[in-house]
Design a binder for these strands. Structure first.
Lengths: 278, 278
DNA sequence: TAGACTAGTCCGCTATACCGGAATATATCC
DNA sequence: GGATATATTCCGGTATAGCGGACTAGTCTA
């Protein structure tokens, strides 16, 4: 509350402050984050270097986390990965988050009527992520995995997820380097902001995926009380399919997102649950 | 490593050791566990008393966790709950766990052919939990919520989830009080162990739910390399339905569990993913 | 054989995280 | 309004967590 800068953003991964001792707790979560990002088991030594922590410290923390069940051994070479205890904590979070509780049916329905892959997308700090997914019929590899952090400007949903913010807030939030697209080209800030404004007014955004060159992405906003866009529903389709069924897909998606938003409004915040459970 | 008792079990919630200073990291995870168990936002003060920590310590840790995005404010009265950062860590765990990656389709299929609620169940320490669920047509309230910890002997799956262990190991693992059923009656250990043996041989177990008096629970084991049962698939059905369709349900469930086990065998551990992902 | 790099253990110093307890609010009930 | 319980902040002392750095050992490669 009194500290000069209060960073709520989840993952700087390596601390910038540098000087002085760091708190074990923060280091511990740096370890968890680095494993999340890597999505693979790692050895303590590698973790130590990645998070820029003294080896002695890293080894001790890893052992503590192992003993607590927060990390688990992943092989016989001493590599560790995130543990089951975290999974259940995440589940508990998800259950109180109205959007994810309700959305499964909508994803199922969308994928049923379109045969395409549908997703629920959220912000994680200053990045876009896919929180839930229903894979479509086609066996093609989707641009991003569940939970992977992706720069906001790379995604259709990104336009909507920041659409409740002012231009300045958007620029403050998104790191400059995230405007460099996978192709290497740089997306002008002004272009992006114009797209954000357009998406806000239309309540929809779609474009040819920037991550590959054969899919088209549709996104529609899920609103919570008032204007803020707390999530998006998306469809990922091959470009030919997208072109052929554009209006149908668009309408199905927008309709589903609107209905989901309604459902959130009718269940007051998260209090309904709190009051009703024995 | 040198300490007298090394408890890997996730949630004693209140530390027994008592004497001496406790580690901040362990306290922090006690806080998270207590929130998980309560499944509701709590105030720092309440958390402090619940985990048996000095109030000053609890307040400081809560604030640290808030700043880290591991906890989040849940209302304007200062109540906090698990944060989004935990959700994404949990997602990352889940993606490496073969069972959960593959099982969604099987749950969908089971619920489609039976119209009943289907679940994937796991052990969390010495308790049973539902890790994934597909709700059936009927609007009735299911015995246990996703992620809720339930004594092993209360559940059909429980018989299978410990079936790879010896009688002694089973008794060591399950706390004595967990043999007291919801009704208040005490389930004799010997009866339970006999049922475990029976379930192991049959590769199946079912009984009338102990948590309510109108459902019947079916459970079939998911095996990983060799014998160990790493999870179960379940069906929860009204008793009349269960009686009428018993053989059909049973076969569908056992078949799905066997197929899922096969799938795990064919993808070597978790290494496939590690090697294939770009 | 030596040198360079990766992996992991051990140990002593000291800044500080954790604790206890006092002080201060804020609600609830007579 | 006084009394009681709940809820939160503040502060100083001390056990110790985090750190730096030394040490061992394995693995390249030159």
């Amino acid at each position: 509350m009194g500290k000069p800068s209060e960073s709520r953003a989840p993952a700087p991964v390596v601390d910038i402050a540098g000087r002085g001792r760091m708190r074990g707790l923060d280091r511990a979560f740096d370890i968890l984050d680095v494993l999340r990002e890597r999505r693979q088991p790692m050895r303590p030594y590698e973790i130590a270097t990645r998070i820029g922590a003294p080896k002695s410290t890293a080894y001790e923390l890893v052992n503590l986390l192992l003993a607590a069940g927060v990390l688990e051994y992943a092989d016989k070479e001493g590599r560790v990965f995130l543990g089951r205890r975290l999974y259940f904590l995440g589940l508990a979070y998800q259950q109180r988050l109205d959007v994810t509780r309700e959305c499964r049916t909508y994803l199922d329905h969308l994928s049923e009527v379109t045969r395409e892959t549908s997703q629920l997308c959220l912000l994680d700090g200053d990045k876009y992520t896919v929180a839930m997914m229903h894979e479509g019929r086609r066996p093609f590899r989707i641009s991003s995995d569940l939970g992977e952090r992706v720069p906001i400007p790379w995604t259709a949903s990104g336009r909507l997820l920041v659409s409740h913010m002012s231009d300045d807030e958007v620029c403050d939030m998104i790191p400059a380097e995230d405007f460099v697209l996978p192709s290497g080209a740089r997306l002008p800030t002004e272009t992006f902001l114009a797209e954000v404004r357009g998406a806000r007014e239309a309540g929809f955004f779609s474009f040819d995926s920037l991550a590959d060159n054969f899919t088209h992405c549709f996104a529609a906003p899920v609103h919570q009380d008032g204007g803020t866009c707390v999530a998006t529903l998306c469809l990922i389709a091959p470009r030919e399919d997208a072109a052929r069924n554009y209006e149908r897909y668009r309408q199905a998606l927008v309709h589903a997102a609107a209905e989901l938003s309604d459902k959130l409004r009718s269940s007051p915040g998260g209090l309904a649950r709190a009051g009703l459970v024995s």
